[in-house]
Design a protein around this nucleic acid. Structure first.
Ligand SMILES: [Mn+2]
Ligand SMILES: [Mn+2]
Ligand SMILES: [Zn+2]
Ligand SMILES: [Zn+2]
Lengths: 144, 144
DNA sequence: CTGCTGTTTAGAATAGTTATAAAATTGATT
DNA sequence: AATCAATTTTATAACTATTCTAAACAGCAG
């Protein structure tokens, strides 16, 4: 997780617009968290994000990282992924896509769209509507 | 989660065979846990299984329920499902199938096989082989 | 019976996360 | 600028599902 010490003013405005568009009030902490999180498509735990944010010279508490991730999830800015019981991953890419998870290495990587099967919004349980499709293909390392 | 006070001798032998076939040594606790768990296809948490087991007149500690579920997972007798960060579900049905999860009610139900798309064992990340496909369709209650 | 191995158990410890409540910041209003 | 209310941040405590520990127990072979 590399750092970028100073965010360009242009990119900063972009982040502000993004947060505003999703109804998130602007604060110093939310900006630096968003900067770090949305610098690229990534799958990150709260703890890793906490480290990354504070490696950029910022000073943000762990509680705020948790609060902000929760807020971003509610506002649709990030997606939660439950891969195992011990930690929650946050995906900075909210576009419809699926994942490969390597059970040996713990790597979680995006699936190319063409691979993802499409699902039809029908034959769902009575009285329900589609919320989201959650597909993880667990892979293991080939024996050499 | 209904009880069946006395297991028929025939069904008991069946459970014993199942455990033996998977290399699980027989004990009183493992038998009653397996009886309860495999009575039907179900998705159950460790805590719910603990309650169910001890409602059948048995006396099994929570530690043993956790230990045994972990053992059964390693031996391929049950399947873990990670639906949210707060608890792990155990699926007594290990056949290849997928799930609907109602985010409003918490219901976790099996998908009919015909609905499940098929996945091709190709285009996986380099050096990996398919382990398992994990598909959960999250649904929400329709507004009335 | 004695020892050996594997199993169960109560309770302590762990770890990710959430709740609490006080201090700080923000933004609007005089 | 000073005031005030609302929102946000923070340190820390609390919570909870799960795992660990270490002692008791059970089954079996010699
Ligand atoms: Mn948790
Ligand atoms: Mn946990
Ligand atoms: Zn992703
Ligand atoms: Zn199932």
């Amino acid at each position: 997780m590399e750092t970028n010490i100073s965010q360009s003013r242009q990119q900063q405005q972009c982040i502000d617009k993004l947060l505003n568009a999703h109804g998130v009030n602007l604060t110093r902490q939310r900006r630096v968290i968003a900067d770090t999180l949305f610098a690229r498509d990534q799958h990150v735990t709260a703890d890793k994000l906490f480290e990354a944010v504070n490696n950029n010279g910022a000073k943000v508490s762990k509680a705020t990282v948790y609060n902000t991730l929760g807020l971003f999830v509610r506002k649709g800015l990030v997606r939660e992924i439950f891969i195992d019981a011990t930690r929650t991953f946050y995906d900075s890419n909210t576009s419809r896509h699926h994942h490969f998870y390597n059970v040996d290495t713990g790597d979680l990587i995006d699936m190319k769209e063409r691979l993802a099967p499409h699902f039809i919004d029908q034959d769902l349980p009575d009285g329900t509507a589609m919320d989201m499709v959650d597909l993880v293909i667990r892979v293991k390392n080939k024996a050499p």
